[in-house]
Nucleic acid binder design. Structure first.
Length: 219
DNA sequence: TTCCCGACTG
DNA sequence: CAGTCTGGAA
């Protein structure tokens, strides 16, 4: 069996399904991705909750809201000098690109949507792919710091280049939306609970037998 | 003090 | 490639 698939099976068996964003709305996934950078997800959840409570969790509402108002609600997510304006600018873009119709926005070839996302302020490779995968239903493999850490520790690859890592997974894991969504969620879960940057808990790791780092590490 | 599911600028 | 940006939790 392919190692990348084997890792997936073991993580899924150990942690179980993570049931992420698809349960929520596509728009929430977009806002979450834009606010997530360099912040704990806990704070992003609070920010989204604040927006919803204020009736601002909507394309038009956010597009029209003054930046200071948006800032008041998302301040907890940090980087308040950039994120609020980026969220509003992105919503304005959605309005004049597809009249705020997300199905229409995402209803184009993956590469086209990805290029459009990357052209937006504050949207880099990870944010773009995260939006594609969890809001747009496009089967692209999301790469983040956790993916890189786990992948290099295990010895799946050595590169640190975004596209190279992404290609690795997309060539070894069947291109299925649900699988890609679940795999990324599992990597995040694994990186936070056991495969931490410092003090990893290799003794309890479900993929230790597949891991170059874990096998060599003493208890 | 460090770190958190990055992106941008110089 | 390195510095910078943010607040909050540990």
């Amino acid at each position: 069996m392919d190692r990348a698939r084997h890792v997936y099976q073991r993580l899924l068996g150990h942690y179980g399904p993570q049931h992420w964003w698809p349960a929520e709305t596509a728009f929430e996934a977009i806002v979450g991705a834009l606010l997530m950078q360099q912040t704990s997800w806990r704070n992003v959840e609070v920010a989204i909750r604040n927006l919803r409570r204020a009736g601002l969790l909507d394309v038009r509402a956010l597009a029209e809201a003054p930046v200071p108002v948006i800032r008041r609600h998302v301040r907890i997510a940090g980087l308040y000098r950039t994120k609020p304006a980026r969220v509003r600018a992105f919503c304005r873009h959605l309005l004049d690109r597809c009249d705020g119709d997300l199905a229409r926005y995402f209803g184009r070839p993956t590469d086209v949507v990805r290029a459009d996302l990357l052209a937006q302020d504050g949207v880099g490779p990870e944010t773009a792919d995260s939006i594609l995968l969890y809001a747009g239903g496009h089967p692209v493999f999301v790469v983040d710091a956790y993916t890189e850490r786990i992948g290099t520790r295990i010895g799946l690859f050595r590169t640190r280049e975004y596209r190279a890592i992404q290609n690795f997974f997309e060539q070894h894991v069947p291109r299925e939306l649900a699988t890609y969504q679940e795999y990324h969620a599992l990597l995040v879960r694994h990186a936070k609970t056991l495969c931490r940057r410092t003090n990893p808990v290799c003794e309890e790791c479900p993929i230790r037998s597949l891991c170059d780092f874990g096998r060599r590490r003493k208890r």
